[in-house]
Design a binder for these strands. Sequence first.
RNA 1: GCAGGGGUUCCCGAGUGGCCAAAGGGGGCGGGCUGUAAACCCGCUGGCUCAGCCUUCAGAGGUUCGAAUCCUCUCCCCUGCACCA
Length: 382
Amino acid sequence: MSDISLLARNHVELLPAGGLEAKLKLGRPLRVKLGIDVTSPDIHVGRGIPLQRMRAFQDAGHIGVLIVGDYTTRIGDPSGRSAERPILSDAEIDASAKLYVDQAMQILDPARTEIRFNGEWLSKLSFADVVRLTRTLTVAQLLERDDFSKRIAAGHPVSVSELLYPLMQAYDSVAIEADVELGGTDQLYNLLAGRTVMEAYGLEPQVVLTTPLLVSFDGSKMSSSIGNNIPLAAAREEQFGRTMRIPDTMLEDWYRLVVEGPVPAGEAMDAKLALARFIVARSHGAEAAVEAEAHFTRVVREGGAPEDVPQGVLPDGDPIHLPALLAAAFGLSTSDARRMIGQGGVKVDGTAVSSLDVPRAELDGALVQAGKRRFVQYPPSS
RNA sequence: GCAGGGGUUCCCGAGUGGCCAAAGGGGGCGGGCUGUAAACCCGCUGGCUCAGCCUUCAGAGGUUCGAAUCCUCUCCCCUGCACCA
């Protein structure tokens, strides 16, 4: 019925050995779980990789169960110290969850996806239930987690509530009776904790399948907080440009993990362009990919202005103080703008300017550029 | 609770009375080189119509001509000890 090598393509761990084969022999659609954190409503290409696995299971007739971690997010980090886990309002969480699901559907098959909010069951646990849950793991087991042990070794704080996160995630598997749980390799600990906890609750433990973390253009794993991400919700030009930033040496990994195919023969440049088109097309459609490439060619490769440059309005006065103008147009500080001018990064109609005050006539009807990518057009006064 | 050690600009991390808007690295930005990149080279990196001025070194007071640096209190973190019906 299902080809295991296809389902488990690119996996790093597939545990326990033979577990997936046994599950498939049950002859019913498997419940394949993937948990998502809704702290920021951002799925990026890297986080899309486990989703691609879920899609493969769906295509083979199984059910994808997407767990929205609304409750986990709602609790937040009680110490209030972590910027990564801000406490969000219910409305923010709901909005964020919706965006998240929309993005996930770029990759998933909606007809075979079940969306569940973990508040559904976590909010109903009594304190006694929570204590029962905590009995399923020991402190030593919790501290085994690399992340915790490293932070402790480095003298960084680990709050007790953080120790509960793996337990909450594990309980999700109990609640939905997961057959398989997917995740990045960074989730291995949590996924395995899910097995232990499921067993303690008298369930058949889930099979654990981890996928590699996608290394981004800066050489570290793709992450929203680092800012090296390519969000599935990002604009077409942005997705295209960010993809083109990856070094040629990463092409093989990206093709294997994202496209799930070989790198096309020929120039690295062409392969990268094709990759960028693939990513944009998946999120925005084939036509968007063509437009994004045209934009990239014009702005980045040829150094020209984009097709639709935002219109600006010149302030009163003559001459015009350029730092203030740039600050207003591009959201810079005037100090920043001054630096850019001083370094020859500001052009008016293609010519670098060096003076801080520019006669109004020179700006009237001019195209102003700051750096490579910031443009503003001032319409001629009549 | 007690005893030590800490909290520095986006991040890491120097600085322990003036030469400090604060070393160095990372990241980022601008320029150059180029096939997009990467690599490499140069420069910049708190704010302000900027040869000057203003606001920063957990927070609030204080000492001093002068404080990131000294003192007091507060908050937070770490380590050890103690507590643990």
